[in-house]
Design a protein around this nucleic acid. Structure first.
Lengths: 178, 178
DNA sequence: AAGCAATATTTGAAATGTCAAAGGTTTCGC
DNA sequence: GCGAAACCTTTGACATTTCAAATATTGCTT
């Protein structure tokens, strides 16, 4: 944490009302915040359950599963940069993930002849087989977890969250300082 | 990754049938998976934006912000175990988070007289002030990001995701091996 | 052909994340 | 009160995460 003095000075000059800021999410003013907190906690809940089961049943991690899912649907493999975009994982992170998956024999790394900057990752047969098993289980877990939710609600949620995603995408700050 | 041979054997003996037998299964079967993938990617998108801004504007991290939010609404402080539950962060992780926040002067650690097993974390005045500023900004970011979504949809989403969360909560596997 | 910008991946530092095991403390049962 | 069980936090080993800087390679410009 850096640059505190400047920030504190700002806070001082404003005298933000500390009582109201976090609390009053009930009153309609903070619908977005309230929704976000609920989305976040729900996502964490599901993620942790999925992670726990992937680990217990397959000894795999969620990021590994995600990465393999992308490779699974592109039989010819993907460049690491592509993988990074699709999994929303940083480049540096993909390097390590692929490294470990390769060590486990799930993934193969190849440098194509045309361009030696590039590394293409590809599932091995072993990786494909394991992922197939995991994917089927994974789908079942989700169906179970959401079993009490009306299918119509699920469809509605899918649509509406799509709207949220679009809105968010259109309001991202590239990189800006104040 | 461990225990592969057993898992592979299972996969072999099952030969999962990718063709779907039940009627209407193409559309209905994977609704939950589809919803989950969309929830996950949307949450990642928002998280990354929030993280980027917290860092750029306040030099703080998202987990730190989360933790401070919990302490903010409990002026008397919270035991680390409580913090762990509320932030959905493991115990060991809370230790480190609080350590760093204490080093930054945002948080105070106290061992109450009654029970020396316990550590209570509490925001310092400096921490309170900074959090107040961050919380106000944070709320604004979310309002901006979701600006294109109809308020009625936001309210609906909040309600429906609540249903999802309840369902998931009721279908968690404590700890089970197969 | 030399130089330089653009592209693609890796590396390194710091923080966060999980899990399991280890430490102290308290409390309960006897 | 003693010893064991229960409780709370810390520690340690790894994996994942981000960002920024460093490498390496290609392609463009002149």
């Amino acid at each position: 944490m850096q640059d505190l003095s400047r920030i504190m000075a700002e806070a001082d000059s404003e005298t933000v009302d500390l009582e109201i800021i976090v609390q009053g999410a009930q009153e309609g003013k903070k619908q977005e915040l309230r929704l976000w907190l609920r989305m976040l906690s729900t996502t964490k809940l599901v993620s942790q359950e999925v992670r726990r089961r992937l680990r217990a049943e397959f000894g795999a991690t969620l990021p590994q599963f995600d990465l393999m899912a992308q490779l699974y649907r592109e039989g010819d493999g993907l460049r690491l940069g592509e993988l990074s975009k699709r999994t929303m994982v940083t480049n540096g992170n993909v390097t390590g993930l692929v490294e470990r998956l390769e060590a486990d024999g799930m993934v193969l790394r190849v440098t194509p002849d045309g361009d030696r900057r590039v590394t293409v990752a590809k599932l091995t047969p072993k990786g494909e087989k394991l992922f197939g098993t995991m994917a089927a289980a994974h789908e079942g877990w989700l169906r179970d977890m959401m079993a009490d939710v009306d299918p119509a609600v699920i469809a509605e949620l899918w649509k509406d969250i799509g709207e949220v995603k679009t809105s968010v995408s259109n309001h991202l700050s590239g990189v800006d300082f104040d």
